[in-house]
């Protein structure tokens, strides 16, 4: 068994977990890229959409941006702790990250309920009835892009939670870094979505 281990092909420069995650991130960016390009094409075609964009809640969006950026900071801290194999610090920082994710989701739900309350629904029946048929599909993009992103936040939080359990038991420290990479991607996508949907009028 030992001789076999010795002869096993050696790992190349990049650890395979990190390489796999980079590829996954590239794939995710193409998915979101497809959505963003489609959105931009429509946005440039319809001037009416700027008015719809002004109905988004920039303050809540900004809070969420801040929350996510903070969570990214905690992930970096957790990664540093993982390099020192400091289980306690890892648990603390990852817990803070997951807390941030929860805040993000609560804010998101508040925002959604506001939007739905104001009649900006998926199908835009109310808008279409008031003669704003073209504007209604703006909200399709809004809900799809933020919703898909929120799904990624949920998945990221679950992944971080699972990884944290491993780190608490003192094993698989390298997974913190990989899960962290994923979390940074979730963060970065939001950085793209926030100006696209909220700010640009």
């Amino acid at each position: 068994m030992n001789t076999k281990q010795l002869l096993k092909p050696t790992m190349k420069d990049i650890p395979q977990g990190r390489l796999g995650m980079w590829l996954l991130i590239a794939g995710e960016f193409v998915i979101f890229g497809g959505l963003m390009v489609s959105y931009l094409l429509y946005r440039m075609r319809y001037e009416q959409w700027a008015e719809m964009a002004s109905h988004t809640n920039v303050i809540l969006g900004a809070i969420n941006t801040f929350v996510l950026l903070t969570s990214s900071y905690f992930v970096v801290k957790a990664h540093q702790a993982a390099q020192r194999k400091d289980s306690k610090k890892i648990t603390m920082y990852i817990s803070l990250t997951i807390l941030c994710a929860l805040i993000f989701l609560v804010v998101k739900i508040t925002e959604y309920s506001q939007k739905l309350h104001h009649g900006f629904t998926f199908s835009g029946k109310e808008l279409a009835a008031s003669g704003k048929a073209i504007e209604s599909s703006y909200w399709g993009f809004y809900f799809l892009m933020t919703g898909l992103h929120a799904t990624h936040v949920v998945v990221g939080a679950i992944v971080l939670f699972i990884v944290m359990q491993g780190a608490r038991k003192g094993k698989n420290y390298h997974r913190i870094e990989i899960a962290g990479l994923y979390w940074h991607m979730v963060d970065l996508i939001w950085i793209f979505l926030f100006p696209l949907l909220y700010i640009a009028h």
């Binding site: 489609s38 429509y42 319809y46 998926f122 199908s123 835009g124 029946k125 279409a128 048929a133 073209i134 504007e135 209604s136 599909s137 703006y138 909200w139 399709g140 993009f141 809900f143 799809l144």
Partner: peptide
């Protein structure tokens, strides 16, 4: 989403 919840991504009459 067009099928399930009635968004209008590919509906010409809603932009």
């Amino acid at each position: 989403m067009d099928i399930l919840v009635g968004t209008g991504f590919f509906d010409a009459y809603r932009g």
